[in-house]
């Protein structure tokens, strides 16, 4: 499938191929088909002058939760960028170095979030912009602000972490792509940046069921990366010292109408839910009541709880034996 043209209302999807298995045709948001042509399309080549925007979100990495009320308390001292946002910065810096361009770090958040911009400046970003939206922005408005900055910078390459560590929706990168009318390559676990092909990234991403997809995205694109994809370089001492006094551009949020998020995109998201996983269904020939009991486990015999006192190695063997007994270990 070829990518949607920039400016269309529907987010483009990077071209790609699944490996080893092909995707189900109804898999949401992923591309099907084989590799895209190797050369960037002539109408949208990445140019050496395009800055790369990297998004950084300031988040408490060790929030404390009141066990009684569930209230979350965050502390600026333990706040910073997630591993995924750091990975995005590293990829952005590598791309900028390969293609001879610069990185602009953007955060949408309160004043405290400037700390993650300074980290980016220390590591090598050329410019830092804070969109002052307080801490209340939902995914759609955050995305709209990032897209507005990218547009204003004529930036056509945006890199983000794949998901906030605080149970974020993970929707921001897709929403930015939607608002920019850019291709999207989301949830990448690895990226290849070729100095000979400015404005083009190829990478792998995970799919459900252990599948992987190989993607190739050409500017304009939004790519999001997993935290484990790469480690952010250690900023040099000079970089750190310089970043302390470097100017940070603070801009006011454009407000709810400023972004171009399509109306069909969800404006807000519900609470996080664990991922579903495939459970082998019971034999369809069994009677209905039997299938229900098999699926729910209700009324099934359960092994009695047993407390084991043993040396660690012996205890581990006993645990494995018990798991095997219960059918949880092969």
């Amino acid at each position: 499938m070829s990518a949607a043209p920039p400016g269309s209302d529907r987010p483009g999807t990077a071209t790609g191929s699944h490996e080893p298995a092909s995707p189900s045709p109804d898999h949401p948001g992923t591309a099907t088909g084989s590799h895209a042509p190797a050369s960037p399309s002539p109408d949208h080549p990445g140019t050496a002058l395009d800055p790369i925007v990297v998004c950084r979100r300031w988040v408490d990495l060790r929030p404390s939760v009141d066990p009684l009320t569930g209230a979350v308390e965050s502390d600026p001292r333990t706040s910073g960028a997630s591993a995924a946002d750091d990975a995005a910065l590293e990829w952005a810096l590598q791309a900028a170095e390969a293609w001879g361009t610069s990185v602009v770090a953007v955060t949408v958040g309160p004043t405290g979030s400037q700390a993650v911009l300074r980290d980016a400046l220390a590591a090598g970003a050329a410019r830092a912009i804070q969109v002052d939206l307080g801490s209340s922005g939902d995914a759609a408005s955050v995305a709209a602000e990032i897209a507005a900055v990218a547009r204003a910078l004529s930036a056509r390459m945006v890199l983000c972490g794949d998901m906030g560590v605080d149970r974020g929706s993970g929707a921001v990168p897709a929403l930015v792509a939607a608002a920019m009318g850019a291709r999207q390559a989301l949830g990448l676990v690895d990226l290849t940046i070729d100095p000979a092909e400015p404005g083009v990234v190829t990478g792998w991403r995970r799919l459900d069921g252990g599948r992987r997809q190989h993607l190739r995205a050409q500017a304009p694109f939004v790519a999001s990366v997993e935290g484990a994809s790469i480690r952010l370089r250690r900023a040099s001492l000079a970089g750190v010292l310089r970043s302390g006094g470097a100017p940070i551009e603070v801009v006011a949020a454009t407000g709810p109408t400023g972004g171009r998020v399509p109306s069909w995109m969800p404006a807000s998201t519900g609470p996080g839910r664990p991922r579903t996983h495939v459970v082998d269904g019971p034999d369809p020939h069994e009677p209905a009541w039997r299938r229900v009991t098999l699926l729910t486990g209700s009324g099934a015999d359960r092994p009695a709880l047993r407390v084991v006192h043993a040396e660690p190695v012996d205890a581990a063997h006993q645990l494995i034996a018990a798991l095997a007994d219960w059918g949880e270990w092969e």
Binding site: L49, D50, S102, A125, A126, R127, A152, S154
Partner: peptide
């Protein structure tokens, strides 16, 4: 936009051009 970029860009927003950023600070 970065000044170097802004000059030739169609539709660049108005405003005083910023000094060109250091290519890549690293």
């Amino acid at each position: 936009r970065p000044a170097a970029d802004a000059a030739g860009a169609a539709g660049a927003p108005p405003g005083p051009p910023l000094p060109a950023p250091a290519a890549n600070a690293a």
